[in-house]
Design a protein around this nucleic acid. Sequence first.
DNA 1: TGGACCTTTCAGAAGATACTGAAATGGTAG
DNA 2: CTACCATTTCAGTATCTTCTGAAAGGTCCA
Lengths: 181, 181
Amino acid sequence: MRENPLEQARLLFIRRWGEMAASWGISRTMAEIHALLYLAPEPLCTDDVMEQLEVSRGSASTNLRQLENWGLVFRIHRRNDRKEYFEAETDVWQMFEIIIRERRRREVQPIVETIERCLVLVEDGRREISGEGPIDVDAFQKRFTEIREFTEAMNGVFNLVSKAGRLGLKPLAKQLARLAR
Amino acid sequence: MRENPLEQARLLFIRRWGEMAASWGISRTMAEIHALLYLAPEPLCTDDVMEQLEVSRGSASTNLRQLENWGLVFRIHRRNDRKEYFEAETDVWQMFEIIIRERRRREVQPIVETIERCLVLVEDGRREISGEGPIDVDAFQKRFTEIREFTEAMNGVFNLVSKAGRLGLKPLAKQLARLAR
DNA sequence: TGGACCTTTCAGAAGATACTGAAATGGTAG
DNA sequence: CTACCATTTCAGTATCTTCTGAAAGGTCCA
């Protein structure tokens, strides 16, 4: 089994996927579980995960739950079997959409709201110090508006890409990509 | 100073930028320093950073160096002044390009290479087990090719977006974005 | 050459994050 | 209701990351 190339590929991918996740603020184990399920030909149960990745029951449970919350993994019940099985989303475009949507909600939204708040504060400040001092309020404000414009543009780009994926327009995305060169 | 709205905005933004960074695998302090410099009307020196963010000299030095390595911050020398000053890249499109280019090089490239390697291994495995057992090699291989296609498409999209920014075609990016709705 | 001034480095400390193992909880069938 | 099986929770622990403070390293000028 150790020198079976298919098995080698499987283990290599799982390891690398976990390593990469670390630099993206995702725990190594969670990513490894995701990779394991992504490659699995059929749903796995908690004990399969524990055994294959050598993690504790607690860790497996917690991470599977989190993956489920992200919407990247589904819980499956089987008749005459109390165990729960888990299956990964295998459409990479769908995965992309899920990840972007969730990260936007959890991590981008707060900064967008902060920018809006900052712009309000800058307006307040501008009124307060009108005709006073050498402070360049315009330049200060510009830093905020530019970030806002950027996030709006990015928002749109991601919508476009995910729409392209959803409609099965993968070739279109490629086409778009080629345009850029 | 505490109730000056401009100052409030500045502190709020720095705080939030640092918090957000944590979920993206970037250290809080490094992000705060970046935000501080991004909003600063003129270059700051190490002591300014230490004072304003209440961090040690070692931390300031290390993080400034890292930001410089990323290309997000520039080191500036002044005549008749031994101190070094630091200034942030303020063009957000440029920032985006830098961040994507660096993360791609450091974090996406390894997974791409792994995928290629996996595909080679799968071909080896296919030969080895030809006409044997019930293992569905095709399905297994498909998981890898789909990720490869996806990364290629993404690559192209990012090239397009960064080109749009580079050419000053920000309105185009917005237009593209609107298309998606 | 020596001293003033700054930056970098790094060992140890602090802090954050994730994991373990076991107890508590939940749910199902007899 | 009880026994059984599986999942969840959580306090304690391990591990990894980042920070601190001080010493070492550079550089410039008198």
